[in-house]
Design a protein around this nucleic acid. Structure first.
Length: 876
RNA sequence: GCCGGAGUGGCGGAACAGGCAGACGCAAGGGACUUAAAAUCCCUCGGCUCUAACGGGCUGUGCCGGUUCAAGUCCGGCCUCCGGCACCA
């Protein structure tokens, strides 16, 4: 009696085997082509969820497949271990963030091992360990040396009660009030200028933008978002002289992408934050009103402040400038929609050709001057209902002095050039991309390795003193402020330059820094001289496949690109781009159950009543059918652990790959999981049942059915072809698995139609090859079952070390071709012709087909379309 | 508003590069085995329609039009849904 499939025993057995044999341990092997397969490392939040199962299953299939294809595969895993939840746990439960994190890492590592993932755990990195974050500090110092890290004042959302900086997401909107409140304490959030550390990512803006063109294997939408985020604009900076100088200020410089409209500039607007405002209004009667306005606008949190639905508002400064092109005296305003950080923080306002300026001009009754006329000349300056800005391609300049009559495109370059020759300014390029502020007033992050000395100013920690280690004597009160400030042992230091007293920087780095280069660390995780060993990077970089969530489309993926270029310029890697193929997988969703009384409920809290699903608590009708991202609050989570207990990791992996293509959302279905479990059981039984035949124990007498062998071979090689091309084509795992299912169905059919005792020895060779091939093809998807059955066949482990089967085109050929016959493009009949029939033979057989003849009765085809081996179409 | 993406059975989804629409799986229905259940195996399964039956016919991939011998696929114009960005001068 063949043993039943017991997933718990089988999976434990092979996981232990892989670990003991070091199956997934990898070293640089220059005799093979390399393949670097990477999935985004997790934050150790406590336990893994279905989203993790899905990403890691995808990566694991590819890593195992590439190994079987003979590649030297790097497939590492680690922990993005710094971050706020650890600190919150410390505040709420009194556990030290380090202990909390380590516990989670240990637990989650066990969970990942239960998934049977082929990681080289010897390369594990943990960003919260000094041997990792010291390199964050090292890179930071190098960036300081190169001017890529610097300190500046910047406006932040600040909660005065918690004494902390808040991210935009932590500022909550409040009914009936402008501005937001703190998510934790409900205090009104204010804007505060803080001195913080920045990375000069803008130095790489152009290269990051151009690099997008090289990333041909990234999803279009990720590239679109990145390009937009970088946001390159070509334009002109122009000085508008003041009519009377204010203090040392003689002119205001603006940036515009529409120099062609400059004759239509009838006023100017400054950003409220601009220091020029104070210079302009000093001593003027308008000063008080302007200051009041500026204060009101600057109080708003960032999100409200820059929201597009914010009404346009402003105030007149009392000062005037001169439009250098028209010599008109134009008023200078302060406007809430002008951004201080973009361009020069000042704009020329052209109400006729910019919708924002138009609304502003209407509201404050400022002049509107038409300088672009549409091709038909229909625009009347006094009757404009909105700015004429859309049809820039076709417009022609009017009221623009010697530039009148030019097209918009010609005027742009002519006026830009004129500005330069007159010395009024120059053509320039602006990016939306801002420098990356990395200071965080947190404990659980990388300490910024800088010192403040009363004598010497800002002094870097000498490289030899790294790492600057996080101290343990820090109280977690949740009161706010930077926790490191409370540690005396930490903040007191000696100045390396003068030997005097110095104060340590108590801010830590944004955790995005940690994840910006971890993929390089995996190349040489033990290296003690550099963040990454250049030879190791030379061997492994770039990452061939990177799998992760679309939510990282900008920040992480842009920062990682930036860091790769910085580390390249430091001579540590030669890679320009970190990730060649990017696969962004969709969310895992599940159906929800909503009761108006009890909100989200579990399926078990509902019952069927008169054909309606109702709540067991209150009897109200349950709203079903809505699928949402799995979350505890919506009570629609499925637990990977339960799944491994009930069905096994192989089934969990298989379902998460089969139910949807990787980039789409995956709707979890318990019955769908059962379907995958059934499939693995079918494979199990098939191998067990065929075992005597495959081993040759059961010798059957003489059957001449050699067509059976052909059939088996064809099915086998078709499946190899399908699975291989699906995997090569960027991971169509769902259809690859479907092909395996079809293959198993086919094998069962052949098996039932041809019971064992009729098989010849010759045919057995076919069965053996078919069964072995099935297991080899299944191995990347369901590795435990594949290993076990491979052993059952009497083979040596590990199946993952075997060569991937090759398909033979000759064996794919069928004895006959089925040729569909069409009349006027409609399918009317099908004929069977011998393989290799010529066009003439096929058409002749077609014309002999009685069904076709009926359709052609009384008609003479005036054209016969023949598509080789595909179809024949008779056109009448 | 701008930028992406998607609309195919009851459902998740197939269809390489214009060539047999609906692979594979789920659900549903019917049957076999069984004392029974589970498990397993077999059959049916887009809609309308003709036939006693075998087997046919028409129609069908969001909508309208076009190209083509042939369109889920290509082109033009819409509609709907989802996601992202959102005053960047």
């Amino acid at each position: 009696m063949a043993p039943a499939y017991d997933h718990l025993t089988v999976e434990a057995k092979w996981q232990a085997y892989w670990e003991q044999s070091g199956t997934f341990h990898v070293q640089e092997d220059s005799t093979k082509p390399k393949y670097y397969c990477l999935e985004m490392f997790p934050y150790p939040s406590g336990r893994i969820h279905m989203g993790h199962v899905r990403v890691y299953a995808i990566g694991d299939v590819v890593a195992r497949y590439k190994t079987m294809r003979g590649f030297n595969v790097l497939h590492p895993m680690g922990w993005d271990a710094f971050g706020l939840p650890a600190e919150n746990a410390a505040i709420e439960k009194g556990i030290h963030p380090s202990a909390w994190t380590q516990e989670n890492v240990a637990y989650m590592k066990g969970q990942l091992q239960r998934m049977g993932l082929s990681y080289d755990w010897d390369r594990q990195v943990n960003t919260s360990q000094p041997d990792y974050y010291r390199w964050n500090q090292w890179i930071f110092l190098k960036m300081v040396e190169r001017g890529l890290a610097y300190r500046k004042y910047s406006a932040v959302n600040w909660c005065p009660s918690c004494e902390t900086v808040l991210a935009n997401e932590q500022v909550l909107a409040q009914e009936g009030q402008e501005g937001g409140i703190c998510w934790r304490c409900d205090s009104v959030v204010i804007q505060k200028a803080l001195e913080q550390w920045f990375f000069r990512i803008t130095d790489y803006a152009q290269e990051l933008l151009e690099g997008c063109d090289q990333l041909t294997s990234w999803p279009a939408r990720v590239l679109a978002v990145q390009r937009h985020w970088i946001g390159r604009s070509e334009g002109v900076e122009v000085d508008f002289p003041l009519t009377d100088s204010c203090l040392d200020l003689h002119a205001i410089r603006i940036f515009t992408t529409r120099p062609d409209t400059i004759h239509g500039a009838t006023f100017m607007s400054l950003a409220p934050e601009s220091p020029l405002v104070e210079q302009l209004i000093a001593g003027r009667p308008q000063a008080a009103a302007v200051r009041e306005f500026v204060a009101r606008v600057c109080r708003l949190d960032k999100a409200t402040r820059t929201g597009a639905d914010q009404e346009k508002e402003g105030v007149f400064t009392g000062a005037f400038a001169v439009n250098p092109f028209t010599q008109d005296r134009i008023p200078i305003w302060v406007a809430n929609f002008v951004l201080y950080e973009y361009g020069t923080g000042a704009i020329m306002a052209v109400p006729a050709h910019d919708q924002r300026d138009f609304e502003f001009a209407k509201k404050y009754d400022l002049p509107i001057r038409l300088v672009i006329q549409d091709p038909e000349g229909r625009l009347l300056p006094d009757a404009l209902e909105g700015a004429y800005e859309e049809q820039v391609q076709a417009g022609v300049l009017v009221n623009s002095g010697k530039f009148s009559g030019l097209s918009v495109a010609d005027a742009k370059s002519a006026i830009g050039e004129y500005v330069e020759t007159q010395g009024w300014g120059q053509r320039t390029i602006n990016f939306r991309l801002r420098d990356w502020g990395i200071s965080r007033q947190r404990y659980w992050g990388t300490p910024i390795p800088m010192l403040y000395c009363d004598h010497c100013g800002i002094v870097p920690v000498p490289e030899g003193d790294l790492p600057v280690v996080l101290p343990d004597d820090v109280p977690f009160t949740g009161k706010g402020g930077s926790p490191l400030k409370e540690s005396l042992s930490f903040s007191k230091a000696t100045c390396p330059t003068c030997g005097g007293m110095a104060r340590r920087e108590t801010d830590t780095m944004d955790t995005f820094v940690d994840s910006s280069w971890y993929f390089l660390r995996y190349c040489s995780p033990q290296d003690t001289a550099h963040p990454v060993n250049p030879q190791a990077a030379q061997h492994w970089m770039a990452v061939d496949l990177y799998v992760g969530g679309i939510e990282h489309a900008v920040l992480h993926l842009l920062y990682a690109r930036f860091f790769t270029k910085v580390l390249r310029d430091l001579g540590l890697t030669t890679a320009d781009e970190p990730f060649i193929f990017l696969l962004t997988q969709g969310m895992v969703t599940k159906e929800t159950y909503w009761c108006d009384e009890h909100r989200w409920v579990l399926p078990a809290e509902t019952k069927k009543h008169d054909g309606q699903r109702v709540c067991v608590h209150c009897g109200k009708t349950i709203v079903t059918g809505r699928t949402e991202k799995m979350s505890k609050s919506k009570k629609n989570v499925a637990s990977p652990e339960d799944l491994c207990d009930r069905y096994g990791a192989d089934t969990a992996r298989l379902f998460s790959l089969f139910a949807a293509p990787p980039e789409k959302d995956l709707e979890w279905s318990d019955t769908g999981v059962e379907g995958c479990s059934r499939f693995l059981n079918r494979v199990w039984r098939l191998v067990q049942d065929l075992l005597p035949v495959v081993r040759g124990e059961q010798v059957s007498p003489n059957s001449k059915e050699s067509s059976l062998l052909t059939q088996l071979q064809r099915a086998t090689h078709q499946t190899i072809q399908k699975v291989t091309t699906d995997l090569e084509r960027g991971g169509q795992f769902n259809t690859a698995i479907a092909a395996l299912m079809e293959f198993v169905n086919e094998l069962y059919k052949l098996w039932k139609d041809h019971p064992a005792d009729t098989l010849t020895i010759f045919e057995r060779a076919g069965w053996q090859s078919a069964v072995e091939t099935l297991l080899l093809l299944l191995a990347p998807f369901a590795p435990h079952v594949a290993e076990e059955l491979w052993e059952t066949l009497g083979k040596q482990p590990s199946i993952g070390q075997q060569r991937w089967p090759e398909f033979d085109l000759a064996l794919l050929a069928t004895a006959e071709w089925t040729i569909p016959l069409q009349v006027n493009g409609k399918l009317r009949s099908k004929i069977l012709v011998p393989t290799g029939s010529t066009k003439e033979e096929i058409i002749a057989s077609a014309q002999a087909d009685p069904k076709l003849a009926e359709w052609l009765q009384g008609k003479t085809p005036h054209k016969i379309i023949y598509v080789e081996q595909k179809l024949v179409n008779f056109v009448c």
